Measured scan of single mutants.
Amino acid sequence: MFKRLMMVALLVIAPLSAATAADQTNPYKLMDEAAQKTFDRLKNEQPQIRANPDYLRTIVDQELLPYVQVKYAGALVLGQYYKSATPAQREAYFAAFREYLKQAYGQALAMYHGQTYQIAPEQPLGDKTIVPIRVTIIDPNGRPPVRLDFQWRKNSQTGNWQAYDMIAEGVSMITTKQNEWGTLLRTKGIDGLTAQLKSISQQKITLEEKK
């Protein structure tokens, strides 16, 4: 169930391209415009997507990853294993993690069937560096609404905000991946996880038929 919630949630996290980005210092504006741009692209490019579902990787690479804190999220997933990894191991892992996100997020976007969304009203940021933004996803086919909290983090150097995690039903996506990959990290280390991520990233994206 959580895996499905995570995939549905990713439908609204794909941010804007650099040329049309919203105010990078306001995570609420980023979330709002990102959702609108993403849904528009999914709707307008269905012919290309249906002809070649792996085209979704391109959308992810162009529109999402430049505005997601990939390395920060990847380091959180590694936890204690990050500090013990060599620079070469980290570089290989982050490259594999990025390719994994292209496949995983692309597969999530393949679930698009006309969903709509509501974003919580903007709250004062103050001096906060981590801000959760509640998004409610509404399914046109009558499924119950899904309420999610996207975690946005302020870059201490640039002042810009980027998304790095999502919490559904009190469970963090980062925590879920830590639990899912924990045994592999304990037995085969970061190299074993890197190899698995490379394998997963090679899987073809498949479209979910409308139910």
Rank of each mutant, 00 (worst) to 15 (best):
E169N: 01
S17T: 05
Q123K: 11
T58G: 06
P87W: 14
L42T: 14
Q196A: 15
Q157H: 08
G74L: 11
W161K: 12
L184G: 06
S156V: 09
I200N: 05
S201D: 00
L64T: 07
R41I: 15
V8H: 01
L185C: 05
P121V: 08
L125V: 03
A163Y: 11
W161S: 04
G182N: 01
I137M: 15
A35G: 06
Q162W: 05
K102N: 15
L16E: 00
R143F: 00
M173V: 09
I205V: 12
P47G: 05
Q118S: 04
A95G: 04
D127F: 13
R143D: 15
Q151L: 02
Q107D: 00
K3L: 02
K198F: 13
K198T: 08
Y100C: 03
L10P: 09
P15L: 15
I133Q: 15
I49F: 07
W181F: 15
D127T: 04
D40A: 01
S156F: 14
A104M: 15
Q103A: 02
A14Q: 10
Y82N: 00
I137R: 05
K198H: 12
A21R: 04
L109K: 15
N141S: 14
Y100T: 15
Q202N: 14
Q118I: 06
Q162A: 02
N26E: 10
M31T: 09
D149I: 00
L65T: 02
M173K: 03
A85I: 15
G114T: 11
P47T: 04
K128Y: 15
R41F: 01
K204A: 10
D149K: 12
A35V: 09
F2A: 06
W152A: 11
T38W: 04
R57K: 07
P27H: 10
L78R: 04
Y105Q: 04
I13A: 00
A18H: 10
G159T: 13
K154I: 02
D191M: 01
D40R: 03
L76W: 10
Y100Q: 00
R50E: 05
P144S: 08
Y117R: 12
S17N: 13
M1K: 00
A120N: 01
Q162S: 05
A73T: 11
Q118L: 11
G182F: 14
Q24M: 15
R90P: 00
Y117A: 13
E208A: 04
P53Q: 10
Y81T: 06
L184M: 01
Q202D: 04
V60I: 05
L207A: 12
D127Q: 10
P47W: 12
A14K: 00
P140H: 11
A21G: 04
A14E: 01
S156Q: 03
G170C: 15
T187M: 11
K188A: 04
V131S: 06
Y112I: 03
Q69G: 10
E209M: 01
L125N: 11
R186P: 13
A85H: 06
M7R: 03
D54M: 03
L109V: 11
P145L: 07
Y164R: 05
Y105H: 11
Q80W: 12
A195L: 08
I138A: 10
I59L: 02
V171Y: 01
L10G: 07
V135T: 11
L148N: 07
S201A: 07
E91Y: 15
L16Y: 03
Q118K: 12
V146Y: 10
E209H: 04
K29G: 06
M7D: 00
T25P: 05
T129L: 07
K177C: 13
R147N: 03
A73V: 14
T58P: 04
A95P: 09
E169Q: 14
W152Y: 15
A104E: 03
S201M: 00
D32Y: 05
A73M: 07
D149V: 12
R98I: 14
K37W: 08
A73Y: 04
A21T: 07
V12M: 09
T206L: 04
Q151T: 06
Q69V: 07
A21Y: 00
Y67F: 12
Y105K: 02
R98C: 08
T176E: 13
V8Q: 06
N179V: 07
S156D: 12
Q151K: 15
L5C: 07
A104I: 01
F150L: 12
A35C: 01
E91N: 01
A14R: 05
Y55E: 15
A168L: 02
L76C: 13
I133M: 12
E33P: 06
N52I: 01
P47N: 12
R90V: 12
A96S: 06
M1N: 00
L42V: 11
Q178R: 11
V146H: 10
